[in-house]
Amino acid sequence: MNSNSSPIIPENTDVRTCPINPNHWYAVARSCEVKRLPYSIILWHQAIVLYRDQKGIIHALEDRCPHRQVKLSHGSVSGNDLECAYHGWRFNREGKCTFVPYLAEHQKLPSCQIRSYPVLELDGFIWLFPGDEQALKQKSLQPMGVPEWDHLNYIATVSVINCPGHYSFLIENLMDMYHGHLHNNYQAWAAAKLQNLSVEQNRIDAYYEAQSYYRIDKIWSISQLFFPALRRLHPEPLTVSYIYPHWQSTLGQDFKIYCLFCPVHSTYTRAYLIHFTSLEAFWRLHKLPIKFRRFLKNSLFGSAQKILDGLVAQDVEMIAQEQAAYLENSSRKTYELNPTIAQVQKFIREQALCT
């Protein structure tokens, strides 16, 4: 998106209608989701197709054949190009037409061009930059990344969030640790109290003091995740951070969680929630062979799936109600006591103004 053609966003714009700031990297798919066939995604109203070339390198194009405007994601990969299912036209990673099967000798290839997007594969996810490529080069912008993904001391669980609401509802939910009343036995913390709030150019950090049972210092202590009767609460610092456009949280030394955003449009948000359990406390484990530790990490992948999916389902239900209520009457006043939420809303408007 060229900044010269971007819409002007008034400073008092309703946060529930704010667009994303496209000049950031968004997580649009897991690496394992994009295999041999083209893969369709939508990022803030933009239909995009992901595909792998012969070497397995990921590419991203506008999901539209300029010939008849059908979806390229319904086609196939031919060599390093993407082939349209309708007439067999092919397009390279730059979005240029490279082949038309019925082209006559005296005819030239059409000069049509579809948009290509900067795309990277990092830490188990595919990251896409939908904004101004000049800004990308000038500022050397990089994806946030998930460094624990390949780290042998962290066990991962991933839950996909399909949320029928504007992305602001989801990030407010994640930044507000006062809604633990909703989750009962699904959450690892209780009685959160906001201690401090830090606001910088591209991030907000909210520091809470909470009660937690999530201390993984003995093998048996992992059973606390599954058996509430074994849980013993203790004080633990809880930090939640909005690192635009994504979210990150830590609870003590043993808990880390990310939410990677892919807003689809103004009333629908897709995101990936990644939960990490740390094995840092098990020092004897660190002396074992790398292959065994890798096997253990892979074997335990998804071990917190039931808990994570349960949390997501409860939050999505509430956000769906919030979105429905907003659409029914957008002028209805709401009441907020957590200062974090006011900062989040201001931050979203500021980022929208940057488009």
Rank of each mutant, 00 (worst) to 15 (best):
R231K: 04
P237Y: 04
P237L: 01
R294A: 13
T269W: 12
N298I: 02
L233D: 14
M318K: 14
E322M: 14
Q314R: 13
I243W: 06
F255R: 00
C262D: 09
F226P: 01
L279G: 06
L300Y: 04
E328H: 11
A325I: 09
G302Q: 11
L300M: 12
Y242M: 14
D315T: 05
I243K: 13
E236C: 13
Y258W: 15
E328G: 07
A324H: 09
M318G: 05
F261G: 07
P339F: 00
H234L: 10
C259F: 04
G310W: 09
Q321H: 13
T267C: 15
L288K: 15
K306S: 04
L296R: 09
F227D: 13
L300H: 04
Y258T: 05
T239N: 07
A229W: 14
P235K: 10
L279H: 05
W247N: 01
K291G: 11
W283L: 10
Y244K: 00
S249A: 11
I216H: 07
T250V: 08
K297F: 05
T334A: 13
V316H: 00
S278F: 08
T250D: 14
W247C: 10
Q323D: 01
A324P: 00
N338G: 01
Q248H: 15
K256S: 01
T269V: 07
E336G: 01
Q253M: 09
S299A: 15
G302T: 02
L273Q: 12
P263E: 05
P339C: 00
T239E: 04
Y244S: 02
N338I: 10
K287P: 02
I216A: 01
F261K: 02
E328I: 06
I319G: 03
S330L: 06
S223M: 07
Q321C: 11
A324S: 10
S278L: 09
I243F: 03
D217W: 08
K291R: 11
I274A: 11
W247A: 00
T239A: 04
L296Y: 12
E317W: 05
G252M: 06
S330V: 01
P289G: 09
P235Y: 09
E280Q: 09
E328Y: 08
P228Y: 03
Q305V: 01
I341D: 00
H265I: 12
S303D: 04
A342M: 01
R270V: 03
R293I: 13
